[in-house]
Design a protein around this nucleic acid. Structure first.
Lengths: 337, 337
DNA sequence: CTGAAAGCGCTTACAG
DNA sequence: CTGAAAGCGCTTACAG
């Protein structure tokens, strides 16, 4: 059987309290005893039970991560960065794909509570704000990659608004004037901010973006393709389109191809996220990169800080985005229109 | 504070043993009491502590999943299917990205043991076979997506050998005779089997595949690109290439493009896995699809069966692959060579 | 049908 | 510097 603290204590001829103290580096134990007990733990291959120590009020060293879908490359990359930072610090993470459905969120949260995770990162949308209130009352929480207005929560986000601006200015510099946007569902705050930033930058240059040129899509590539196809069949089609994520942009690329519209010669496409998808399409996508690694690590750090130190004030960390120029954007070419 | 079993017992005027029994549907409890206790649990929002019940010998309802990298789309999709099946059955899963490094595997396994996960799915390669032996001695284990020769373990795999054959016969039917293969590292058994299946099918048609036409790559897209570039610059270049996964195929596509070789007109490309990448490239990839959903679900089911029922004999489940034809393959065109 | 008691593997005041 | 004892929230024989 697996060795317990009793086995170690017996071997060492001390009480379990003493063993516990050397494990946790508490109290004063003579150096000699310490060494001896460590040697015995080594020999017995003793590893303290996380379960037992969690029951006595310590941490479970487990974190929860709520995201829409781990199969979505952006969230997969984000999860990797969360996992890595957690692992460095001795925590493991339970990943929960919610499909943005409140009932799934509820089920997962209830399970995570029962398992007494030390904290929860919320990177998923939810309709019911009471849910969020309940969660953050029940355990340390940080919101990841989105904004929750009027709600005090630790937050780590990329500069979505600024990123939208980066995309817009890039296209403006290339001479584009007639542009359109493929956005995600209105309820996704990050997408909304990207569009706002894009719009704002255009307006700063005296160009307005009418509502009809901001097209809403669901989250699948096919939606991007379908919506883009409609857009590109207009009599006065845009010379550039800004897509709120790589998946939609990949769909737009396909629509352009089927319509016989060449990218970037006849149509420039800028996307957001800079996941692996952006480097795999043809042409590869010019994309506003989120600092995925920093986002994940930042969320973990903030969460752990929250429950290791008592920390009253809610922090908000906003990270810079960066434009990665690839082959999907080029100078606006008037002859094609 | 959170309600405990004591609170429920007190409210109901019974002992905690009785409450425990109604929770676990054990022993005989009068229907009346049962109803009453359920009502009280509901009212108190009582949820049993998984930690406490795990300490008394029950399950933790947590599973471990070892994979090379969650950021790799194939494993992200696999993880999603594992998560979904687990969630249906009341289990959550801790995902561990090992980068195929034995020391990371060791660290993760040690952590998972300390947390007393109920079982472990191993979808990662490892050099040190003693590690596998230790793991499967310590907890219920199933090997996922790879073969471990000479080692008794539950296994769930796709038919890699058969899939390689599918790819070969598809190309043969299209009239290809001069073909090459981009394979992963030799140590990856699934890749090896894919190549073997491909080779065998060619030989069955009287075509041999010399060793120099099987090129080894590391796991990144850039490696596929670099190796493919070398291949395509040969004086007698192949008319078709079989890539052991989507990532390498995406790299090959890029190499072909840079070399000015049109796909599929001048070069056919078949890949393996059929992840999202296959539908995003241009042209989209003809790919041998792994039944990712069934793989993940099968692994979870087998694992749970292993520890819920005592099950001595090790099972091996092999699932069919399927060829998904997209735009990257076409009839071999002699005029181009 | 129900409950008292021991035990799971730890931690933590408290006493010495 | 070290240990006895209570307690964390459950489950499980065992007794009645």
């Amino acid at each position: 059987m697996k060795a317990t603290i009793y086995d170690v204590a017996r071997e060492a001829g001390v009480s379990i309290a003493t063993v516990s103290k050397v494990i946790n580096e508490k109290g004063k134990i003579s150096e000699e005893r310490r060494r001896e007990i460590f040697a015995i733990m080594e020999r017995l291959q003793y590893r303290p039970s996380v379960i037992a120590s969690a029951l006595t009020g310590k941490h479970t060293y487990t974190l929860g991560l709520l995201i829409p879908d781990i199969a979505n490359p952006f969230f997969a990359e984000l999860a990797r960065s969360v996992e890595d930072r957690g692992h460095q610090l001795g925590y493991s993470v339970i990943i929960c794909s919610t499909d943005n459905q409140d009932d799934r969120i509820g089920q997962y949260v209830s399970m995570l509570k029962q398992k007494q995770v030390d904290g929860l990162m919320i990177g998923t949308g939810m309709t019911n704000m009471d849910l969020l209130r309940d969660i953050s009352a029940a355990m340390p929480t940080v919101v990841l990659g989105r904004e929750v207005p009027d709600f005090p929560a630790h937050t780590v986000v990329a500069g979505d608004f600024g990123g939208g601006g980066l995309a817009a200015r890039h296209l403006l510099q290339l001479g584009h004037r007639r542009m359109a946007v493929l956005a995600e569902d209105e309820t996704i705050s990050s997408s909304r901010d990207r569009v706002r930033g894009f719009k704002q930058a255009l307006e700063d240059s005296g160009i307005s973006l009418p509502e009809r040129d901001v097209l809403l899509c669901r989250h699948r590539m096919e939606d991007g393709k379908r919506v883009a196809a409609g857009l590109l069949s207009r009599v006065e089609r845009p010379t550039a389109v800004f897509c709120c994520n790589d998946l939609l942009a990949a769909g737009a690329l396909q629509a352009a191809k089927e319509a016989g519209i060449r990218v970037p010669e006849e149509l420039s496409v800028v996307s957001f996220d800079n996941t692996i998808l952006a480097s795999v399409t043809d042409p590869p996508l010019t994309s506003v990169a989120q600092p995925i690694e920093l986002l994940g690590a930042g969320a973990v750090d903030l969460l752990i800080k929250e429950f290791e130190q008592a920390q009253p004030a809610k922090e908000r960390i906003e990270l810079r985005t960066e434009l990665i120029v690839r082959g999907s954007t080029a100078v606006a070419n008037a002859t094609f229109n």
